[in-house]
Amino acid sequence: MLLAIDAGNTNVIFAIFDGDELKTRWRIATDPQRTADEYVVWLRQLLDLNGLDVDAIDAVIISTVVPRALHNLTVLAEKYFRTTPLVAGRGDAKWGVALDVEQPDSVGADRVLNIIAAHETYKQDVIIIDFGTATTFDVADYDGAYKGGVIAPGINLSLDALVGKTAQLPRIALEAPDDDNVIGTTTETQMLIGIFWGYIAMIEGLVARTKAQIGRPTKVIATGGLSILFDDHTDVFDHIEADLTLRGLLILYQRATNI
């Protein structure tokens, strides 16, 4: 079985693949100082709870946008799974796709993995919206080449900034409003409307402008933990692929090992 690890700015996701099947996935808060020993205690308990044998893991691939987290994750693979991990974008796991931007080395690993997975499925121009710590909009053409994109503050970051930089605004739960009303009558509803519908307007506006610039039929793919929050309130998404980045890791592993 393959252990695929995606270390993001907020969470590290551990996923188990048995062939092409995603068996399960777990999240833990990103902490570059967390040791391999700490990881494995947590991971062994979750594997056991899911009836999975730790000794069945015979391959590891790691993607990270937090460089300081890579060392301990590598030690985890070598010490406890007795394997040298593949690292996305390096060595045998090089991307294999064109990064047609001015600074290709600065493109986050998760964004390239999303492009790889989306192109494998759709084989046409795509816009991928990833709702994470930041919200990213990435464009790939029909050949799978990365053409660029947009980086915007994630919706939680926006809410945190609004509350943190004001004296009297309360912290509110992030959720979809009960209706389509955009005139709030309380401070809390006004904040929720501003954050939620303001975010919808940003998404729809950027997608419309991006499609116009591409000028060809384009699929819009949403991914990331918060993507389902917006799905019932806009028709801008063609598909929601919750595990797009993990699928990209699997594809990269299969290409690197000729499986």
Score class of each variant (00 low, 15 high):
15 A>Q: 10
177 P>G: 07
126 V>F: 03
108 G>Q: 15
26 W>Q: 01
1 M>E: 12
37 D>N: 12
253 Y>V: 06
24 T>K: 09
20 D>P: 15
9 N>L: 05
74 T>K: 13
57 I>S: 07
80 Y>C: 05
97 V>L: 14
19 G>C: 14
218 T>C: 07
63 S>C: 15
15 A>N: 14
233 H>P: 03
218 T>I: 01
100 D>Y: 00
34 R>E: 09
10 T>K: 06
259 I>T: 15
11 N>W: 15
19 G>H: 14
208 A>Q: 11
134 A>N: 12
74 T>E: 15
241 E>Y: 06
52 L>F: 13
88 A>R: 04
138 D>R: 02
123 K>S: 05
107 V>C: 01
134 A>D: 11
116 I>S: 03
87 V>T: 08
254 Q>I: 08
201 A>N: 02
130 D>I: 01
202 M>P: 06
5 I>M: 12
57 I>L: 10
147 K>Y: 09
21 E>A: 13
246 L>P: 13
134 A>Y: 13
37 D>Y: 11
44 R>K: 10
122 Y>G: 05
7 A>I: 01
228 I>W: 10
97 V>R: 14
213 Q>E: 15
167 A>P: 02
178 D>R: 07
85 P>I: 04
131 F>V: 09
45 Q>W: 12
36 A>Y: 04
89 G>C: 09
151 I>V: 06
123 K>I: 00
69 A>T: 07
53 D>G: 04
118 A>M: 11
133 T>A: 10
1 M>K: 13
180 D>I: 02
245 T>W: 07
138 D>I: 01
104 P>R: 03
91 G>M: 06
114 N>S: 15
75 V>Q: 02
254 Q>E: 14
117 A>Y: 06
106 S>I: 01
45 Q>T: 14
237 F>A: 06
252 L>W: 10
61 I>T: 06
115 I>S: 15
121 T>R: 15
135 T>S: 14
86 L>R: 05
149 G>T: 08
258 N>R: 11
53 D>T: 06
151 I>R: 03
188 E>H: 14
223 T>R: 08
182 V>R: 02
125 D>I: 02
83 T>E: 09
160 D>H: 06
228 I>C: 10
117 A>R: 01
14 F>K: 10
243 D>P: 01
2 L>T: 07
170 P>Q: 01
223 T>C: 13
178 D>H: 09
204 E>R: 03
169 L>T: 11
178 D>W: 00
19 G>Q: 13
76 L>C: 05
257 T>P: 10
55 D>W: 01
229 L>F: 12
181 N>H: 04
95 W>K: 05
116 I>F: 03
29 A>I: 00
239 H>R: 14
196 F>V: 00
19 G>N: 14
76 L>S: 05
253 Y>A: 14
114 N>T: 14
191 M>N: 05
208 A>Y: 06
49 L>R: 14
194 G>Y: 00
172 I>F: 10
259 I>R: 15
239 H>M: 15
